[in-house]
Design a protein around this nucleic acid. Sequence first.
RNA 1: GGGCCUGUGGUCUAGUGGUAUGACGUCACCCUUACAAGGUGAAGGUCGCUGGUUCGAUCCCAGUCAGGCCCACCA
Length: 795
Amino acid sequence: MLDVNAIEKRWQQYWEKNKIYRFDPKSKKKIFSIDTPPPYASAGHLHVGHALSYTQFEIIARVMRILGREVYFPPGFDDNGLPTEKYVEEKLKIDKSKIDRAKFRKLCLEESKKIEKLYAEKVFKRLGHSYDWDLLYTTISPEAQKIAQIVFLRLIKSKHCYRKEEPVIWCPHHETALAQAEVEDLKRKTKLNYVSFDIENKTKNKKDKTKNKIKIATSRPELLSSCVAIFVNPQDKRYKHLIGKKAIVPLFNYKVPIKQDEKVDPEFGTGIVMICTFGDTGDIELWKKYNLPLKISINKKGKLNNNAGKYQGLTLKEAKEKILEDLKKEKKLIKQEEIEQTVGSCWRCSTPIEFIVTKQWFIKTLSFKKQLIAQGRKIKWYPGFYRARYEDWVRNLGWDWCISRQRYYGTPIPVWYCDKCNQVILPTEKELPLDPIEHEKICPKCKKKAVPDTDVFDTWMTSSNTPEIASQWLKNPQLYKKISPMSIRPQSHDIIRTWAFYTILKSYLLFKKIPWKEVTINTFVLDPKGRGMSKSRGNAIWADDLIEKYGVDAFRYWVGSASLGSDIPFKEQELVAGKKFLTKIWNASRFVFMHLKNYKLRKPKKLEAIDSWILYKLSDTLENVKTFYEKYNIAEARKKAEIFFWHDFADNYLEIIKDRIYNGTPRGKKSAKYTLYICLLSILKMMAPITPFITEEIYQKYFKKSEKDKSIHISTWPKIDIKINKKIEKSGNLFIKILAKVRKEKAKAQKSLKAEIILTIDKKTQKELKPFINDLIAVTKAKEIKTGKFSIKFL
RNA sequence: GGGCCUGUGGUCUAGUGGUAUGACGUCACCCUUACAAGGUGAAGGUCGCUGGUUCGAUCCCAGUCAGGCCCACCA
């Protein structure tokens, strides 16, 4: 019987031991290189979505290999980010802020190595992934850090990277700057507070006291002490008289100017807005435009500072409550209304972001929008519409890319600053990789010890170099030259704005070229009801269990049904179908080799008609499957291969030749044997990328003796040595139709398919079916064939 | 508010200017010397809705509804 587990183990070991998937740089074949997404190796269960997307491009790797490319497929791990930090802290029960950076990084390196090894075994190898493990890379490795730092230095040199004091997006929880791409929407309910401001130089008209006050609606009263101006819309007749006057900020009692700008929406709130430094991006915009003063009230921890007077030290939340309370006391809070609000928040901790002015490093993006869009158009996207998403993102960019992070762990920013003259001191490329904390630098001008930068890079700063890291840009420039630009970048759509974008950006700024020729966007798995899977929803499905239950090949068979870039609801039924397929191909192979014991492949001089017919079909199928595979349409390729195997080959062909293979003439047997051998081997090769274990098992068990390749997975795509005879093809199809008709009649009569009959068919059909007449008699159990209108009679 | 994607028998899906593919499920029959985890058949769809182009549209165009995703706004 078919023991899937034993098969999986056996061949995984065999592949590894014999380095079946090793990349040969000397090969003359065309190279197909993959910019693998390096996963973060987690200790937990394997999510089906993750298992699917990684297996999806792994199938592509196998497809390209069997279609004759030299495949460059390096495995990688992303261990350069926050998750690693957190994992190590939790596992070793340490606090990273209380231990020095070098030591902490060493621990991270050690721990990630361990967990990655486990992950490689448990996930990649288990799923039958065909990486070349000699090419393994990790993003925390010295090599990857060196690349990130060199790129940084070169971008400074080319003036694409700069340091500036600017309002930046800030996460008060993580206490670090963030990039625009790290901000996510957070919908929440909040109160819009209507606050009364007094106007300076009150009119003496006692009848119209209302003119002495204005109402401002704000959702952020805690920033009152940062208010630097008040704006109204110039078209707004209600407030024309206010422009140029000054208002007094309640509780803090200082004056701010009232100005006008088109950006103010007269419909929102009261139509009057206060500008604080900084409540949102709109504040920043007007602050810049009108050169307003800077009055920061928030510190890096998200607490109020001394600008906030007596509210100093309070958290934003506490301050909001206290200030509202005080406003109420002074009768300055007129009303409150609940509104639905969307605020930017940190993608990791969902803390609403703030804007803080700090010195940070940036890489230019805004001045290259046009070029970046042009680069995106040189790349082929699968599916094509995802290019639009990339372009949308580029067009809407509002900030240069802030690459410095105030974190403990990551690739250090290799610079020093002179306290005295403010000069930035850079290392030479030869010194890299380095952590400036561990090195002393003297300011060349002041001869004073310079201060090391303690920040690290945004993790995307390293990840966006995967094409360089994976293809050994520094270590092996010749190899890099051969491989770059890489063939494909497989990735998910949610990181188009980060991983894809930053990689394209870097490649452009550094080399003025595209990093890869194609991007494939993987399928996204939903739960059976079509909702996204997540731990919090409790509807996550783990691949481990499924593999245990159905086997890897069955799982991969399901992966093979997914089309790039679309969503797929998970249905366990699909795995049942996969398992059925495995059983079927196993049994079919057993049957074939019952009759091919000690068979040596030799093409007979003349093939029986039905043998030719199935070989035509096969040849056609191979062509179709290849075409779909080349377009990464795995699902359609699988379907075509399967229809051939299941219906043409197993249901029809095998049934038709059974009689001949058991009772036929030696010549007839030879013809059948040849055909069986070619068909089965081709079927295995067509399916090998999707179900690598079962196909290898059958190949090794039956075909290895007579085939030269060490593994089916490094064999060549079949070529059918046959000239297509249209007439035979056509009458073969007719034969199958007649056969179906006979079967239908038998089913209708509730008779066994073995039931013997007298078959009546018309003269013309008889004539056309002449080459197949013996087969027809055998397969339909016709004891006699009469001439006339189609009918069957049971004996 | 802008952009993108999707909408096909109970479920999932292919597809094309000429009323539709396959799988799962359902039903009937057949234990056929590889396979009952099989085979042979059957039933089941006005291809989201409304208009238009066309001799003819599921496929092209416009609008509309529903679902999903991305982005912007968010005082």
